[in-house]
């Protein structure tokens, strides 16, 4: 878990955190928005960055770690440039989750939980993403991709890759 890269909050991020604090009567309540800001800037939240977030909020760092460890959308280790969340819950499973998963794993050459060697994609799974009408579906970064088939998934990956 050693931090190879020193992560620091930019001035913009610090200003955004201050802004978030203004929306709540306590500093602690801003820990989720602050972590979102930090993660958006760095991709994941290292121990060093957690400390900076705590400083910025003026709260004990263990409060930051409590949030980091409880909420699954926060990454505490380096992840790929794009994070893929496959929905593994019932409606997606009924409509072909297993095939989508197999296709993704073979196209990317990795298993769930891993990151491609070029650092482009991390493949994870999540519970129902609230898009069961488009099952099977996945989320990549902040976009949903619905009605997937083993045939159209390659296009989706190409599109994401070329979007930078």
């Amino acid at each position: 878990m050693s931090d190879t890269v020193d992560q620091h909050l930019s001035d913009d991020a610090k200003a955004a955190i201050k802004d978030a604090m203004g929306r709540y009567p306590t500093a602690r309540a801003a820990v989720l928005p602050a972590l979102w800001i930090a993660q958006k800037e760095h991709g994941y939240v290292s121990n060093g960055l957690a400390l900076e977030v705590a400083d910025e909020l003026g709260i004990p760092v263990n409060w930051v770690h409590e949030a980091l460890s409880f909420y699954v959308l926060f990454h505490t280790e380096k992840v790929g440039k794009h994070v893929i969340w496959m929905c593994r819950n019932l409606s997606c499973w009924l409509c072909g989750y297993e095939e989508i998963k197999a296709q993704l794993e073979s196209t990317l050459g990795i298993k769930e939980g891993e990151t491609t060697a070029d650092g482009e994609f991390t493949l994870l799974s999540n519970e129902c993403l609230g898009a069961c009408g488009g099952a099977p579906m996945i989320q990549i970064d902040d976009q949903y991709y619905e009605n997937l088939t083993p045939d159209n998934i390659g296009q989706v990956l190409d599109q994401v890759r070329s979007s930078g």
Partner: peptide, 20 residues
């Protein structure tokens, strides 16, 4: 930030306060 239980109203309140 990803936790089904936060839909339960008192868990939601804890989460709003920045806690688990």
């Amino acid at each position: 930030a990803g936790a089904y239980i936060c839909g339960e109203e008192t868990a939601l309140m804890e989460s709003l306060e920045g806690k688990k």
